[in-house]
């Protein structure tokens, strides 16, 4: 990436210089002190940091400038997304893209339909994911305006924002997703017996 210049920090240069002069004048050093903190790596340029820093926080931090409406999103969706997700994000058997719309009130039914509307806790994740990974055959090809528009349309299909909604870094971060409180943060639930039965145990639940 020639356009993204990197330059050594003064501190790193000084460390390298010190290490070099020590090595020249005395014995080579070995063991735990062989590598010091600042010797390896270089400082990324501002351009590089900006170009690489694409993640969007759940509170909207790092959302870029730009905006897009539901109606603009409908057009982009039809030409760019519908082939994999269905005309209105309904998905379907054998379609490459997942279902994006519907599934309201299905999560506790035993036959859950997990969609942006029924399951996703943050609208900002929609921007982050569409920008980094969509469309599937041309990731990172949409402009910020287009990503805002597609986000607006998918949210509108789910009845979360009105037909005249415009998404930008202020409005998208304020969207309240229906399943915002549907998650419990925890590591894998322990489901453990304290002892392993060795004799006269309950047989495994298989038909013989």
């Amino acid at each position: 990436m020639p356009m993204l210049q990197e330059h050594k920090t003064a501190a790193a240069l000084a460390a390298v210089f010190l290490a070099a002069s020590t090595a020249a004048g005395f014995a080579q050093s070995a063991g735990k002190e062989g590598v010091t903190k600042t010797e390896l790596g270089s400082t990324p340029s501002d351009d590089m940091m900006k170009a690489w820093n694409i993640d969007i926080a759940p509170d909207g931090r790092n959302l870029p400038d730009g905006s897009g409406s539901v109606s603009q999103g409908q057009e982009i969706f039809a030409s760019t997304c519908a082939a994999c997700h269905g005309e209105k994000g309904e998905g379907g058997e054998g379609m490459i893209g997942g279902r994006l719309v519907g599934g309201k009130d299905t999560l506790a039914t035993g036959k859950p339909v997990k969609t942006v509307g029924s399951y996703w806790p943050y609208a900002t994740t929609l921007y982050d994911y569409v920008h980094r990974a969509m469309p599937f055959n041309a990731p990172q090809s949409l402009t910020p305006d287009q990503v805002y528009a597609v986000s607006a349309y998918v949210l509108n299909l789910n009845g979360i924002v009105p037909d005249d909604a415009v998404m930008d870094k202020e409005t998208l971060a304020k969207v309240e997703m229906p399943n915002r409180d549907g998650f419990v943060q925890m590591d894998t639930k322990t489901l453990a017996k304290t002892t392993a039965c060795m004799k006269d145990c309950t047989p495994l639940d298989v038909s013989k």
């Binding site: 759940p58 506790a108 859950p112 998650f183 925890m186």
Partner: peptide, 29 residues
């Protein structure tokens, strides 16, 4: 704080019968 990416919200979360989903279930038991 966690970044709440698509792969730790809409995917790789564990939906329980009561409709709540466990998130950040990291350990393979």
């Amino acid at each position: 704080q966690p970044f709440m990416t698509r792969e730790e919200t809409s995917k790789y979360t564990d939906l329980m019968p009561d409709g709540k989903a466990r998130q950040f279930t990291f350990t393979m038991q």
